[in-house]
Amino acid sequence: MATVSLSLDEIYKLANKTLLANGCDQETADILSELITNAERDGSLSHGLFRLPAYVSGLKSGKINGKQKPDIKKLTPSVIKADGKNCLAPVVLNKSIPELVKAAKENGVAVLAIINSHHMAAMWPETEKIAEEGLVAFACTSYKPAVAPAGAIKPLFGTNPISFAWPRKNNTPVVYDMATASMAMGEVQVAKREGHKVPLGTGLTKDGKDTTDPAKIADGGVLLPFGGYKGSGIAMMVELLAGALVGDNFSYETAAKDNNDGGPPSGGEFILAISPDKLSDKDWDKHANEFFEKMKSMGEVRLPGERRHKNRLDKGPRNINEELVNKIRSLS
């Protein structure tokens, strides 16, 4: 695979220029460019520049409004609802998370319900941001059907990621972000692009056969939930939390109204923030750190998020797929 070396600043400028050329205002372009750059910086390649052409597809078709800002309402002291009005989810998160953090610190717990926004980024940025404020965070969102429920061979669930973050005083948060599918579709698409096989159990062909060929999964096939019935149950939970509970669509309803331009569809997101200072006692951080140390003493155990935090210490250039860079440059 041919690559090109780009500095983090060059990645940001490439993303920013492309977004501005395709209908975003400066604020939206800045928010999304920072998100994309941070994904490349932290090694989250399937959510960095790789996603930019799809964002552009949604902007060019008019499905995504690159200049819109969300309508944020406080329904109760601890319930916040944000209507994205078809803007990009990172913009909604930028505007609404400060309100969620404030409500959780005041009340001990708070919920943010997001509707009508276009989410295709990683989810760790929002939960990590909340944890950096000293709060425990959980978030989930659905997508268009790509995952078969356990026992089925046709998709019903989205890849339905969940993210959890635990705050640590004077240290980086513990953060995980995972698809409830056996593998995120973005990772399958990267494997397809780079010619890699995927593990058996990742997905099925369009005929319902097991395969290690990512192309046969991405092009008409179906992903499987991780852990069989267990992952299927968690994927169902995400559908309910990010769909019925917040007042948005289930994945199959999202697909029915999407224009299939390749860009992220409109959907909902559920985010929960909890204050350990309110709920626990003053030693919660010390107690949790003892647990983390116990984990790490048991072998080559890495806390979730450690690799991303280590990667971001490297401020040097990143090697980006040359074909992808050329495609993005053609869009601007």
Rank of each mutant, 00 (worst) to 15 (best):
T3D: 05
I64M: 13
K154P: 00
C87Y: 04
K73N: 15
N260M: 09
L75P: 00
S182I: 00
G58D: 07
P70Q: 13
N171S: 15
G84E: 12
S266E: 15
Y12Q: 01
V198T: 04
I217C: 13
N116D: 15
E10L: 08
A82E: 12
D83I: 10
A146R: 11
L112P: 02
N107F: 10
V174M: 06
H287G: 04
E132A: 05
S275R: 05
Y229F: 14
W284D: 01
I11Y: 03
H118E: 11
V246I: 10
E27H: 10
V111K: 05
G220N: 04
P155L: 05
Y143G: 09
T37W: 05
E99A: 13
E322T: 07
R308G: 02
T159A: 11
H118W: 11
A21C: 10
S332M: 10
L245I: 11
P317V: 08
T127R: 02
K102M: 09
V222I: 08
T18S: 12
S332C: 12
P214Q: 07
G201N: 12
T172Y: 07
I274C: 04
G158M: 07
A179R: 08
F226R: 03
F138N: 08
L88S: 15
L52T: 12
G268R: 09
K327S: 13
R41C: 03
A150R: 06
G108E: 09
Y252M: 12
K102I: 08
I274F: 06
G158P: 07
D258L: 11
K286P: 00
K286D: 12
T37M: 09
S163D: 01
I64D: 00
G58Y: 11
R302P: 00
P161T: 02
S5T: 13
V79T: 13
I36V: 14
K206R: 11
L20Y: 06
P264M: 04
E27G: 05
G43A: 04
T141G: 12
G43E: 05
A165V: 02
N94S: 15
I320R: 08
A181K: 07
F138P: 09
L135C: 08
G84D: 13
E306P: 01
Q68M: 14
A148T: 08
K74L: 14
H309A: 07
D207S: 14
S78L: 14
V246C: 02
A146G: 00
N107Y: 10
T211L: 10
K74T: 15
L75E: 13
E187S: 11
G305P: 03
D83T: 09
G263P: 15
T127H: 01
L272T: 10
D177V: 03
N259I: 15
R318C: 04
L272R: 12
A2L: 14
S280H: 13
G43F: 02
G316V: 05
D213P: 10
K129Q: 09
V246P: 04
G220H: 04
R329V: 12
M120I: 12
M183S: 11
E300D: 14
N22V: 07
A104L: 03
M236G: 11
V175E: 00
I234F: 08
G158N: 03
F138D: 03
K154G: 07
K105A: 05
P161F: 04
T159Y: 01
A89T: 11
A242F: 05
I274Y: 03
P53H: 02
M298L: 14
R51S: 13
I328T: 09
E27K: 15
E253H: 11
